[in-house]
Design a protein around this nucleic acid. Structure first.
Length: 158
DNA sequence: GCCAACGTTGGC
DNA sequence: GCCAACGTTGGC
């Protein structure tokens, strides 16, 4: 299985890259979109690399890197009545929502902002810059991933 | 806070 | 199975 690359969005007010740095690993709970869930359930492999994206932030953009550290397992939040992610249709025997575990790799010295991604013609195919794209977990091509990490390293050295 | 774009729900 | 209504996402 060849390594894959992903972009995973999180609102930093809820869970930021600093939180991941502190925790080192986290289960990516709270995804309630089937397309995003299916990427985690069906496509993610241990070792896949992740662009950690800050959404609803000022400015929005990619804050650093993570890596998939465990395959998808039932999202425990769906069973907890007090959770905002509670799903009354789910049972432990028949879970509906699954999530992978993400490990902290690196926080970049400066954010690769959405503005910068949009301005770079080489990155025009990225899902995150497509109009109306709200998907919180997106596949990223190996080419785009490597280009962005190089960009981040270069910017960090300035 | 606004609102365009998108996903989901539920009546028919 | 259609589609209007509603809720959510997320940039601005």
């Amino acid at each position: 299985m060849t390594k894959r690359y992903w972009l995973m969005k999180s609102e930093p007010d809820v869970y930021s890259i600093d939180d991941l740095k502190k925790d080192q690993t986290t289960w990516w709970e709270g995804v309630r979109n089937y397309q995003a869930r299916n990427f985690m359930m069906q496509d993610m492999q241990i070792g896949d690399e992740v662009l950690f994206y800050h959404s609803n932030a000022t400015p929005p953009g990619i804050a650093g890197l993570g890596q998939i550290s465990a395959l998808a397992a039932p999202d425990q939040q769906q069973f907890q009545k007090k959770s905002e992610y509670y799903d009354p249709k789910a049972t432990p025997q028949k879970p509906i929502w699954f999530c992978t575990q993400v490990r902290f790799v690196k926080k970049w010295k400066s954010l690769i902002s959405l503005e910068l991604i949009k301005a770079d013609k080489k990155l025009a195919k990225m899902v995150v810059v497509q109009k109306g794209s709200r998907l919180s977990i997106q596949p990223v091509s190996a080419e785009d991933f490597h280009y962005i990490t190089q960009l981040a390293e270069a910017v960090g050295k300035k």
